[in-house]
Every structure is written in C-alpha cells, then in structure tokens.
Design a binder for these strands. Sequence first.
DNA 1: AATAAAAATCAACATTGTGTTCATTAATCT
DNA 2: AGATTAATGAACACAATGTTGATTTTTATT
Lengths: 205, 205
Amino acid sequence: MTEKIADKRVARTKRVIRDALTQLMEEKGFEGITVRDLTEKAQINRGTFYLHYRDKYDLLEQSEEEILKGIAAITENIDPVDAMAYTSNDEPFPIILKLFEFFQEHAEFLKVILGANGNASFQVKLKSFIKKIFYSKLVTKLNKEGIQVPVEILLAYLSSAHLGVVQHWLETGMEKSPREITLILTKMTLLGPGYVAGLKPPIEK
Amino acid sequence: MTEKIADKRVARTKRVIRDALTQLMEEKGFEGITVRDLTEKAQINRGTFYLHYRDKYDLLEQSEEEILKGIAAITENIDPVDAMAYTSNDEPFPIILKLFEFFQEHAEFLKVILGANGNASFQVKLKSFIKKIFYSKLVTKLNKEGIQVPVEILLAYLSSAHLGVVQHWLETGMEKSPREITLILTKMTLLGPGYVAGLKPPIEK
DNA sequence: AATAAAAATCAACATTGTGTTCATTAATCT
DNA sequence: AGATTAATGAACACAATGTTGATTTTTATT
C-alpha cells in the first residue's frame, strides 16, 4: 500500500510527523496548525519537514491518500452479485463489514479527519466510495421493479446515512464491534428507519 | 434575526465582505483564503475588514451563526405532536419542508459551507439540529413499542441521511422543489431505503 | 570496522500575511 | 449645515513560510 521506505530515519520522521498531525488536528483543527507546530510536536527540525512534504497541505493529502487507497482496495473489486450477497436481516453486508474492520485499524486518524475539526473534502471522497458500493448493488435491480425515488437521491441518502453512522461510531469510541454495527446498519436500511423506530409502517401490502 | 445595522456604509461593507467570502470559499476553500484576498475581492481597504471582524475565523463564525439562528428559529418551537404531525406517504413532514425553504433562501452560502471546500464543524452543528427534530418525534414513541436499534445510532443514521440529501440537492442546483424533495425524503424514511429501491422487504408481516 | 551515501540539523534569508496605529478623507445621520 | 462615524492609506512590528548552504549524525554497504 505505502511505498517501501528504505531508510529507517525517513520512516521514523514520516511517522512522527503524521502522529503530530493527528494529535494537532484533534486539538485545534487543520486550519490552525503551522509547520512549526508540527515539527515541535514531532521534535524534529523544521527544515526536515520540507525534505518530505511540500507544505502542510501536501502532508494532509498524502495521509488521506494512503487511507483512500486502502478503501479502494476493498471496494474496487466488488462483484455486484457475490460481494453484497444476500443478506438476511441478521447477516451483515460483507463489504460494509470489511470496511468497518478497516476503519477500526485506522480509527485514530479517521476519527479526527471525519470529525468536527476534520476535512470536508475527505468526507466527500469517502462518501463516493460508499455510493459506489450501493450503486453496484442497485444496478442489478434497475429496470426490474421500478425504483420509487430518483437513484441519485437514494444514493445520497444511503451513503450519507452510512458515513454518518461511521462517524458516530468513531466519535463514541467504537463500543460496538464491526459486526454489530454493520448488522444494525443492515437492519435500518432493509427494514427502514421508520419501521425499526416503531413507526407504523404505512406499507399497504 | 440579524441585528439592525444603522449605518448604510456598515451594511454595505459587511455585505461585500460576506459575498467575497462565499466566492472565495468556492474557489479555494476557507483554508487558503487570506484577509487580503477578501478585501481585494470586496474592493475595500484591508484595515476596514478589521473594523468589523477580529480575523477571518470571526467572519466565518458570524456568517454561520446567522444561518444557525434562522434554523434554530424554525426548529426550537417543535411541538412533538403537532409539528411533525402525521404524515402520510404523500404529505411531507412540515418542519423538514420549512427547513428546505429556508435552505433555498440561503442556498449560495450553504452550498459552499456544506460542500467539499466547506466546514466540517458547521455540518456537525447543522446535523445536531436535525437530530433534535427526529428525537422530538421519537420520544413520543419511546417505551411504547420497542425501538429495534440503539436510538443514538438511529439518530445518526437519520440526521446524516437527511443532511446528505440537502447537500446533494444544493450541489445539483436544487432541481426539485422543497416540497418534492421533502416528499422523497419522507418516503425513503417511512418505507425504508431498501423498500423504495425495490429490494424485497424482509418484513415478516 | 571503515567508508561512502543519505538524512537530519542549524542558522540565516527574503517574502508574505497579520493585526494594529494614526492622520486624513468621505459618507451618513440629525 | 454641521457633527459624527466609517473608510482609506501608509506605516509598523511580528510571525510563519519556504529555501539555501554548511555541518553533523545516522544508516547502509563492503
């Protein structure tokens, strides 16, 4: 995933800089961070920073890029039939489950980047991955039974809802396991939020 | 809503600064904007900016604050029974409809602040308003029929889904009317995204 | 273990944006 | 019309930026 780093010093430097980024973003958001802040927190020379990154935006991009590559690896080989294979109420969507396991591994960074001090553009990128997943699920259904709402809007609804639950899950310390949270998501999506909330389901059967 | 501004010059200055903010955020995001950028775009003296705002963050906060007050005015007087009064499949939630009408009025600013170059913390604040709406709807149902998923997660799901549709609606030029888009949202929420997508609803009736 | 190669440090530099000030000009309110 | 208040323009010290060149330290290689 990440390019192999030959020199131990480089690996260490990049690691301490990224750790500093995560910590500082949590404290004051990317906005308020200076390169000096980063290098002080990381305890390296300011010049060293510029040996590896053009500026702080470059650092952010590279950090995000790495995560997005990991997500792409999970989502890009979606077999519409198999990967989201059905899916009873008590069997989680396999891909969603895999994603939650990946999120858990990178929770520290994702928590800040997807949080209130985070980066809106990263959210958009992540959301489009999630959209892709649901789209691949929907294409098989399209033109069979009519979809009752515009597909684009349905995708916006579903991807946002799922990302929102990821954010909430990270924010509250990941109390549920990836499997548990995926099951809950599956349930809300298949049965409908209204139904699971106990609202009378106005389905004229 | 906004404090009455006595002097016409002040009103004009604040207006051109905020217009500049909206434009520049669209171009390069809040991150990259300098006070010099703002005053050049607004064609005013740089010192004049500091007569009204402490710094660019203060400008952003005040701009957001104004919007949030408008939303608060709509949401704070929610009568759980009345305001979200039922609500057949082809009657939109009144509050949601009102919100969309408000969003339409402030579309230009909201589009950028909720977009890829926008501000994550504003999203969080707006989402919590939406959560409040659904919470007020749910409390009446609580402890009656059991809710099948944790309330907090359900609220995260619903509020994120709704905010996501708002973002998509703004992003794509508000082609649907507030009433149309609210109806679609109501439908997806009450019937369930799975159902409206044509998935077999696994409801064992 | 010795040496060549590469990375990190340190100090210095010009540049740019910041936020403040003060005297002056211009627009507005009554 | 005169008093008041806002906007302008120029100047200032300060802080962060991104770059450079010389030096030291660490790593990889033989």
